[in-house]
Design a protein around this nucleic acid. Structure first.
Lengths: 94, 94
DNA sequence: ACCTCTTACGATTGTCGTAATAATC
DNA sequence: GATTATTACGACAATCGTAAGAGGT
């Protein structure tokens, strides 16, 4: 809830959700189920105490907090590191 | 142990270990037990396939991979974000 | 002896898929 | 009615503390 440390999986799930505004496609990108993505985003929301995404006429839309979160998470956590080149570029120490 | 995604806790544990070269003090900084720190660092090592820290005459010392890892993890993951101002600066979206 | 590292074990929590339901087109 | 969002539930994995043992000074 509030002492939960956001995992990289959760940040990545939110990041994919922001880019697709669609849980199904976000899940496809991450090779998990839409349920998994939804649940991680919900944990993020719970830990923040406010919703980040809402249902909209055309799928999903970001709340104000979601907009701020998308910017700050992208900047602060450097989520882009995790868009493909994680292991090759950052973890492999050879 | 190679499909394990390093958690922020694990990266933070390694970061604290690098700075203190001492599991007890690293654990104090993170308000956990030395055992918890040690186990997270070991998971990191397992996922990398090589040791990062070794016992030394005066406590701990970094291996070559550990030196490289300390630099890259600090750079790539921006661990410094988690040295205190995590919630205030990065998570709080108010 | 003391201090630190290290590990086995168990409890708690987190992650994620399945399956069923609700909402929207 | 088809697609997507949402939730309950259960299996499995990760996290972490306790307690005990190993290593060094």
């Amino acid at each position: 809830m509030s002492d939960w440390m956001p995992s990289l999986s959760a940040l990545r799930a939110f990041d994919a959700t922001v880019r697709h505004l669609n849980f199904v496609r976000a899940a496809e990108e991450l090779s998990v189920t839409p349920s998994a993505v939804k649940q991680l985003v919900r944990k993020l929301e719970d830990s923040l105490g406010q919703p980040l995404v809402e249902r909209d006429v055309r799928g999903l839309r970001l709340t104000a907090a979601g907009e701020a979160g998308a910017r700050r998470i992208s900047e602060a956590y450097r989520i882009q590191v995790y868009r493909g080149e994680l292991c090759e570029d950052c973890i492999d120490l050879s």
